[in-house]
Amino acid sequence: MEKKQPKETKQEALPDVEAFNDEYTRDFLLSGEEVMEGFYRFQSKTGKYEMAFPADGIIVEQAYRIKDSKSEEVSIGLHDERGFGMDIFFFSYYTPEDREGILRRFKSRLGYDGEFEEIEKLDKTIYFVPMEDDELKTYGAYIENKQNSGGLEVVYNIKCDNEDEQICEDYKEEDKAKALKWMDSFTFINDKGVESDE
């Protein structure tokens, strides 16, 4: 497996944030430059997708799983005030034909009974579900690659239990927007002939 991340030269100082201070997490990050406020460029070790990685996030080493470049599981613990965690499941073999089963299973493990909100983007489609009524606010999305096979099941959990209900309510719009922004940050890397599917 070729590593595609360029390593930081000694000259460039890395930002003093959790993500870069943790050795294991740093290995996944491509650059010390923010891609959006409070987020940095993360690349999957499969080389098949990138996303915005939170400054206060740490990748949980014991929970990390990768199988060739076919699937990868990333668990992120968030250390900012309200964040709880993020989970990313990537499968390179997901296709639009499989969507029905994928959404069915995703709903099941989220414990969700309703419909997905379909959000069309240029390079991907986001099937979004907000579950905002618990102590943990859960924002889930199935992100489908439009140009090639591959899909991501992602979950963003935000804490709400230490606050009173009103604060939770107040933050609802902001939390949801934050989640959507993060989900939009996912990009699939589609070069053909460079990465081989194992």
Binding site: V60, G77, F84, E135
Partner: peptide, 17 residues
């Protein structure tokens, strides 16, 4: 299992790490 995760959080107040 997100539901289990929530239950753990509720009961034991631990995060993903």
């Amino acid at each position: 299992d997100e539901k289990f995760k929530k239950a753990v959080e509720k009961e034991l107040s631990v995060n993903q790490q």
